[in-house]
Design a protein around this nucleic acid. Sequence first.
DNA 1: AATTATTTTATAATAATTACAAGTTAACAT
DNA 2: ATGTTAACTTGTAATTATTATAAAATAATT
Lengths: 133, 133
Amino acid sequence: MNTRQISEIFKSKGIKLTPQRIAVYKFVKENPIHPDALTVYEKMIENNPSFSKTTVYNCLQTLTECGLLTPVCIDKDKIRYDADTSFHGHFKCSKCGEIYDFKCTDNETFGIDGFEVEQKDLYYSGICKRCKK
Amino acid sequence: MNTRQISEIFKSKGIKLTPQRIAVYKFVKENPIHPDALTVYEKMIENNPSFSKTTVYNCLQTLTECGLLTPVCIDKDKIRYDADTSFHGHFKCSKCGEIYDFKCTDNETFGIDGFEVEQKDLYYSGICKRCKK
DNA sequence: AATTATTTTATAATAATTACAAGTTAACAT
DNA sequence: ATGTTAACTTGTAATTATTATAAAATAATT
């Protein structure tokens, strides 16, 4: 994903084009590891040592608000981010800590008729295939 | 739910019987509001002013580890707890902040064959019926 | 090239949670 | 009942993620 494509996306979302935002979005988009703010920050300062941690938080928030990123709250102590905003579940291995994406059917719900559902988060945890071996 | 019943439950789980644990469990069990540590703490000191905040955290952790409580991580900044450990979803209203339980069917998943799923968390958010009015 | 509102940056503040150590107590054995 | 011991409670301090703030820098527009 090149800068031109990202520029188009940002423009379509009506957010300002800054090198920091581009770098953050590019990293999260190209690395589907569901990184948290610190992971993003550490990657950012590799290429730009003056990149601020606050900027990482600001960018992640802006990108989330405009719908380009989805927060993944599967860890109890930090927020991760996913650039794949389509409906899918997340599985966290309690052994190796890895997060896996999985597809799933929508399920039938009872007791929230008349509720307006805007977001659905599916978080599974257990032992992944590799760790079960 | 009286103390005798709770005693039996704690014994069956192999955890020590302390007044603090009983009070915490009783409160979470009888008040399905999915309270966080601070909410529990504030309730506890009403009856026992020397109840420590650390004890609340300790009790919640112990009760969670032995399976009597389920953590509900639908808020990004704090952990809530639910004494209903059966499979069900949680809906958070982004307007009033209330958490609603809802029943739901299990759904079919793709891509995690061979994974051992130990826990499934379903977090929905949007506008509740009352706030839509 | 000038303007302006937005963004970046650094630092400080906030808030939830955890670590720790001393005193207390529940459970068990005598 | 009493004593023993490991586990628990308590208060304080430390940790960690995130947010608030304000000054300097910059993107978008005139």
